[in-house]
Simulated scan of single mutants.
Amino acid sequence: MASEYASMRIEGRTPRAPVRRIGAWKLAYADFLTALCALFIVLWLASGATSEERSNLAEQFGAKPVSDVVASQLSALDQAEATLRQSELLSAKTGNVSLTREVDGFRIELIDLDHTPLFETGEESLNERGLWLIDLASQAIIRLAQPISIEGHTDSQPVMRPGYSNWELSAGRANAARRALIATGVPAELIAGVTGLADTRPLRPGTGDLPQNRRLSIVVHIDERP
């Protein structure tokens, strides 16, 4: 690059040698060093920050929050599963609850165990523990805001009541769950169906007599269409 020169003359003295002006590239280099120093300062500050503080720092520089970026990359099923697994219904680890992912949703099983039953023997109404689990399920369902179906299941032990079978018992328990969900805040319009299936769908084939088959299934239907 050609250099520019100028002669400097001080009155009363002989002319001095030409003085070279500062080139434009030096100014650009100084700006670069300033920016580099700023970058190192930001990296040093970020190295000792928590993840939340780093996220806030990134937002100040115009970046999207990490949670927004991650959420945009998840499918509706993934987001629903994350919501369910973070809910108190699953995190309480009661032993009465299981979650299964299906093609178009999730199956939440509320299982009546011998040592922690959800119903009294042969009765349709939920006991105190059953109502507590329904309340926890309700909180998760409200957050999802997706349609659900409720299924009632029994074991293969016959009901010792004239004119009353496991079909009536399973349907009555499913309806009891429906009423309890609505009472704890689930909008009635989210409930797409209520079914009593008696002992026709054991948890595992050939184990219809096991107490674990006495359960309520809440099926969450997820629509992934845009």
Rank of each mutant, 00 (worst) to 15 (best):
R20L: 14
N166Y: 09
S47F: 13
S165Q: 07
G152T: 02
C37F: 11
G62R: 02
E81L: 08
R16P: 02
P147V: 08
V70W: 13
L169M: 08
Y29E: 04
A183L: 05
P117S: 06
I222Q: 07
V159N: 03
I108G: 01
R54C: 11
L33T: 03
L169R: 08
I141V: 10
S87C: 01
V194H: 06
A80D: 07
A177I: 01
S125F: 03
D199L: 01
E109M: 10
E189S: 13
F106A: 01
S170P: 05
E88A: 13
R101E: 09
G95P: 02
L113Q: 14
P187D: 03
P15D: 11
V42S: 06
H115M: 11
R173L: 04
A24W: 12
I150Y: 04
G48Q: 09
K93Y: 00
L89H: 04
I22G: 01
A49R: 06
S125L: 09
R54L: 11
D223T: 05
D114F: 05
A38Q: 09
G172C: 03
Q73G: 06
N96D: 05
S7I: 15
R204G: 00
R21F: 15
A145Y: 06
A63N: 07
S47C: 04
E109G: 06
A188P: 00
D78E: 15
I182E: 12
D68F: 12
A188H: 08
A137H: 01
P15E: 10
T184V: 06
I134D: 04
C37D: 15
N127W: 00
D135E: 15
T200Y: 15
P147R: 08
R20V: 14
W44F: 13
V219A: 04
P15K: 10
L90W: 08
I182P: 05
T116K: 14
Q146G: 00
E168A: 10
A28Y: 15
A174F: 02
L39P: 00
R21T: 08
E81C: 07
S156A: 11
R54P: 07
E11G: 09
A176V: 00
A2V: 09
A171S: 12
R179W: 05
Y29L: 09
R107T: 14
L131Y: 02
L57P: 00
L57D: 02
T14K: 13
V186M: 05
A30H: 09
M1D: 14
G48K: 02
N213W: 02
S91P: 00
P187T: 03
A176H: 04
V103I: 12
A183N: 11
G62Q: 04
S47P: 00
E59L: 10
V66Y: 12
T94I: 02
E88D: 15
R13Q: 14
L181S: 01
R214I: 10
R107V: 13
P187A: 03
Q60T: 12
T116H: 03
R201E: 12
C37K: 12
F40P: 00
R21P: 00
R178Y: 02
A183D: 14
R107F: 10
A137Y: 01
V219D: 08
S7L: 15
T34H: 14
A6L: 14
E81V: 06
S170L: 07
I134F: 02
A58Q: 10
G105L: 03
A192I: 01
S75G: 12
E81G: 05
I218D: 02
T100R: 10
D114E: 15
E53V: 06
G193A: 08
I222D: 07
F40E: 06
G185Q: 04
S149L: 11
R21H: 11
T154E: 12
